[in-house]
Amino acid sequence: MTSHVEQAVAERIAAARRKAEEKKRIREELAAARTAGLARRNARRLRNQGQTPKEGFGVRVYRKHRCEAVHSSWSEFAACVWPAAEVAGDGPYAAVSCAARTVTLYGVLAVALARKRAHDRDGCGPDCARRHQVIALDPGPERTGAAA
């Protein structure tokens, strides 16, 4: 049995959580709208550079890497592109920290963008310059491996 004071505290906590969740939802909607606007503005520049935006977002596309081999996984391809970086995960979208110290691969672009936003907000290390990127990996038309 709870007292009326404990019940009032529990109600206030629940109300504060609902309010925080609503603010988070609104922030995510605004971020999605802002990203869509940037993609529209950057689409022409990407086309002029020979890059195409993937899934409507203006992300850079890396096609070239350091060797001529056909890599069997996304992590091998990323390790070839960023040889000094610590590569984790699997997928065609890379969330790259400042100075490419860590590269995390994701199968979904939205998750990679969320990781970039988290790095931008919280930083990636003590000497973070807040220059994080999301890169779409495209090993080329000859790729026929399991990760394609």
Rank of each mutant, 00 (worst) to 15 (best):
D138Y: 08
A129S: 10
A110P: 05
E21V: 03
A99C: 04
L113D: 02
I26T: 05
V96R: 02
C67F: 11
R101Q: 08
W74P: 03
D90S: 15
R12F: 02
G89F: 03
A114H: 10
G37L: 12
L46K: 12
D138N: 15
V59Q: 06
R34K: 10
E86R: 13
P141H: 04
L38V: 03
C80M: 09
R44D: 13
V103M: 05
G56Q: 13
A148G: 02
K24F: 02
E68F: 08
A112T: 07
V5Q: 10
R143P: 00
R45A: 15
P92Y: 01
A69Y: 14
A43Y: 04
G145T: 13
A114N: 06
L109H: 04
R40C: 02
A10H: 09
F57I: 05
A147L: 01
R17D: 04
D122H: 10
R41P: 00
G50M: 08
L30Y: 03
K64W: 05
G123T: 05
P139E: 09
R63A: 08
E28H: 06
E76H: 12
A100V: 07
A69D: 06
D120A: 08
A118C: 03
E29H: 05
D120V: 03
M1H: 11
W74R: 01
P92T: 03
G125K: 12
P83S: 07
C98S: 14
A148H: 09
D127C: 08
I13V: 12
A8P: 00
A20K: 10
C124G: 15
Q133L: 13
G123N: 04
V87W: 07
E55W: 01
A43Q: 06
A136M: 09
E29L: 06
A136I: 02
E21A: 14
E28R: 15
D127K: 12
I13D: 12
L137A: 09
D120F: 01
K23D: 10
D90N: 12
V81A: 08
R41T: 05
L137C: 09
V96E: 07
E142G: 14
N48C: 04
K19C: 00
L105H: 08
P53L: 11
T102H: 07
S3P: 00
A88V: 14
L137H: 02
